[in-house]
């Protein structure tokens, strides 16, 4: 349990650093702003409580906000995602329930389960983020294109991480 906390704290810091130092500085033509730090919300244990995940999401977004000078838009988006994730997992739960220590990884649950899960979370997060950033509906379709393209890139990085860093062994 303590080692888990250490592990996720380390991932928290690592993802924030990657986001702030590398991905925020990617300049890919204005439409591509990937936010792979949201990966942390995806991979938290299924058994985590709803209140802890809310606070983790809030603080994750807040850290990114502080370093990107964006006020609270990342925190708003991550908090919403952190609120939504348990609802989704509950709705998608297998009949016999999740294994007690199950982790929501690609290799644990397979493509058919992981792809809709990741896409839904990432697109929800990016939509909230970009529409809050614009804060008006005048550039609705412009922003929508931004959401779609950036989500695709974020998902690419998430799948890359899933293939590279997640070991095959089940926990």
């Amino acid at each position: 349990m303590t080692s888990d906390i250490l592990k996720y704290t380390w991932q928290f810091i690592l993802l924030c650093l990657f986001q702030v130092l590398i991905f925020n500085n990617l300049n890919l033509g204005g439409f591509l702003n990937p936010f792979p730090y949201i990966y942390l919300i995806l991979i938290l244990p299924i058994s985590i409580g709803r209140i802890p995940i809310l606070f983790i999401g809030f603080s994750l977004g807040l850290v990114v906000d502080v370093f990107s000078n964006t006020g609270g838009i990342h925190a708003a988006a991550t908090t919403l995602v952190a609120f939504y994730r348990p609802l989704y997992l509950k709705a998608q739960a297998p009949r016999e329930g999740y294994e007690s220590m199950a982790l929501p990884h690609l290799k644990t649950f397979g493509f058919a389960w992981f792809i809709p899960y990741a896409v839904l979370i990432v697109v929800l997060h990016h939509s909230v983020l970009f529409y809050l950033e614009i804060f008006r509906f005048v550039e609705f379709f412009h922003t929508l294109l931004k959401v779609i393209l950036s989500s695709a890139l974020t998902l690419f990085f998430i799948f890359l991480a899933e293939f590279l860093f997640v070991s095959n062994k089940r926990r």
Binding site: L62, G71, I73, T79
Partner: peptide, 12 residues
């Protein structure tokens, strides 16, 4: 938490 976020946004 969301209210906190939005007040941060509005202040920023």
């Amino acid at each position: 938490l969301e209210i906190a976020c939005f007040s941060l946004i509005a202040n920023n």
